[in-house]
Simulated scan of single mutants.
Amino acid sequence: MIITLLLTLCNIVLLCMMILTATVFMPYRGLAKNFPKDVQEALKSRLDEIDRQPKLPKIFGGILIVIMFLLFVVVFIIGGIDGMHNNYTYNKFLLRFLIIAFGTKTFDIIALDYFLLTKTNFFPFFP
């Protein structure tokens, strides 16, 4: 059970690093299409600034995102290998993978979506 919780923590850290990387290195103009028209107008100068940014940080950010995504997969592989060494049954494997996946998603909803987006001013600091 301790390994399952450690793997869940690894996924949570990877998720936070992916969001930070995407925010800092890869701002995306296309997300503003989902905003109301008045918000799009207010953000017009910041969106134009995104187009003028150099491409190298975006490429670096893309590489980091791919590496972190692969590490997400590695976390599940490590969980599977450890389960095989400990003779896990199907139900134990299922429980381990559900704890990892739902633990990460719960953190995403509570800490990131609720706290980071609604209670802090994290994203306005980044153009």
Rank of each mutant, 00 (worst) to 15 (best):
F60Q: 08
K105S: 10
G83S: 14
L98S: 13
I100R: 02
Q53F: 06
I78T: 01
K37T: 02
F76R: 06
H85S: 02
L70G: 15
F60W: 03
A22W: 13
F69C: 14
V13N: 10
R29V: 12
I100A: 04
L7R: 12
L14G: 00
I78H: 00
I67F: 13
P36R: 10
G80I: 05
F97M: 07
F60D: 05
G79H: 12
L14W: 01
T106V: 13
G79Y: 09
A22Y: 11
L20H: 07
V66I: 00
V74K: 09
L7M: 15
S45D: 00
G30V: 04
A101K: 07
V66L: 01
T106Y: 10
F72Q: 14
L9C: 14
I78P: 00
L98D: 08
A42R: 08
H85M: 06
V75R: 03
D51Y: 13
G83R: 13
L98P: 07
L98Y: 03
F107C: 07
D108W: 08
V73N: 04
I19E: 03
V73M: 02
D108G: 05
C16A: 11
F69K: 14
L56C: 12
T23P: 11
L5F: 15
I100P: 04
K37H: 08
I59E: 04
T23I: 10
R96S: 09
I78D: 00
